[in-house]
Amino acid sequence: MTASQAGVPEVPVDLDRLGVDTTRPHPARRYDYLLGGKDNFAADRASADELALTFPHIRTAARENRRFLIRAVRWLARAGVRQFLDVGTGYPTAPNVHEAAHAINPDSRVLYVDNDPVVVAHARALLTSPQPDAIGYLQADLRNPATILNSAQAHATLDFHQPIGLLLVAVLHFLDDTDHPYQVVNTLIERLPPGSYLALSHVTFDPLPDDTTRNLTALARPTARHGTFRARTRDEIAQFVSGLDLIDPGLVSVVDWHPDENPKPEAPAEQAAFDAAVARLP
């Protein structure tokens, strides 16, 4: 559930001061709406509802992606990872990454990164930890990984001499090919210390009927005003983890990644439409 669902007080945000255009949908706010949250605007809801007309399982896909994220964080925490870099985090949603990690390693540290200033404002107000500096927040864009890696906040929150769990969950499909997504991921990976991990999920149309794929592809065009979106095939997604050591069961649907762990998946792959993997850096 999202923070607003969990009974957390709403955070007053000066949208004009932040320069937020509420007339255009934003992935984080649309995702919040799909998960049942209230931190979204009419444009976000309209965009999600139009997408749902073509892919009625879109809310199921959002929930299954979130379940994968928590399973992956818990797996990484049990593997000894005590630091997480969550890029494209979206609005606070219970359980949050730090809550999942702290349940296993209470000394875990998390840096949340998003390009939406409203997301960062909400996160700073709602996400707290008993340990000072254990949770950091950074407004930055995945398209410019150097801004993230070189930021004072990153180095205040994370120790780049110890393993880090890099979380790129439901964010890479918002980078078009012209954004050089593989180069972006490689730049992040190259700066992580040995023994770090990459956990990612990515929308794929592979399990969908041809007519659904055609219609969703049309909705991803700039003239459709849903924002940049680039679904990729499993082979294309595999390139993001090329050269890394894949953790069993490898690159699979989000519902097939450690499905016996909690929170367990509740839908088939064709409804989830996400592929996912966790890989260890050599």
Rank of each mutant, 00 (worst) to 15 (best):
G80E: 02
A101G: 09
P12V: 02
Y31P: 07
R109G: 05
T93A: 15
T187Y: 04
E10Y: 06
R17F: 02
R45W: 00
P193K: 03
K264T: 14
A43W: 00
F205L: 15
L198F: 12
A6D: 13
R67Q: 14
F174Q: 08
R234Y: 00
P249I: 02
H161G: 13
A156C: 09
R109T: 03
N65D: 12
D32Q: 00
H173A: 05
T233G: 07
H155A: 04
Q239C: 07
R225K: 15
A121K: 02
L85C: 12
D116P: 08
A276N: 08
P106L: 07
S242M: 02
S129D: 14
L188D: 01
L111P: 14
F84E: 13
A121I: 01
P106R: 12
L166G: 13
R221H: 09
L219V: 03
D16A: 09
T60L: 02
L53M: 09
A46C: 10
D206V: 03
L111F: 07
L216E: 02
L35F: 06
L216K: 10
H180E: 10
T212C: 13
L188C: 05
R191K: 09
A238H: 08
T204Q: 12
T2Y: 05
R66Q: 13
A238I: 05
Y197A: 14
D49L: 12
V241A: 13
R230G: 00
A72G: 13
N40D: 14
F41W: 11
F274W: 06
F274I: 03
G90Y: 08
L138A: 05
P207A: 10
L200G: 08
G80C: 11
Q139S: 03
A100C: 04
I135P: 00
L208C: 14
R24K: 15
S4C: 14
T204S: 15
A6H: 05
A154T: 13
L167W: 05
N115T: 06
N262P: 12
D16Y: 01
Q83V: 04
V171R: 09
P117E: 13
A170P: 05
V255D: 11
P56T: 01
L53D: 07
V203L: 11
T54F: 02
G136Q: 06
R17S: 12
L188W: 01
L35D: 09
L138N: 02
T54C: 06
A52R: 11
P282S: 09
Q162V: 11
V252P: 07
L200I: 10
A279E: 14
N105L: 06
G90S: 10
P132I: 00
L76H: 14
L18D: 08
P222V: 04
F84K: 12
S201C: 03
D211W: 15
G80D: 07
V81Q: 11
R280K: 15
E64N: 04
S47R: 02
D39F: 02
N215C: 04
V185E: 11
Q5C: 01
L246Q: 05
D133M: 04
P193F: 03
T147N: 09
V87R: 09
Q271H: 13
D21L: 04
D177C: 01
R78W: 07
R17C: 05
P181F: 04
E261H: 10
Q271I: 01
D256N: 12
T147A: 15
V8C: 07
Q131A: 03
A79V: 06
S253M: 00
T223I: 10
H180L: 06
N186H: 14
S47V: 01
G250E: 13
A272K: 06
F274K: 01
Y197D: 01
A125V: 00
D176T: 15
V118G: 10
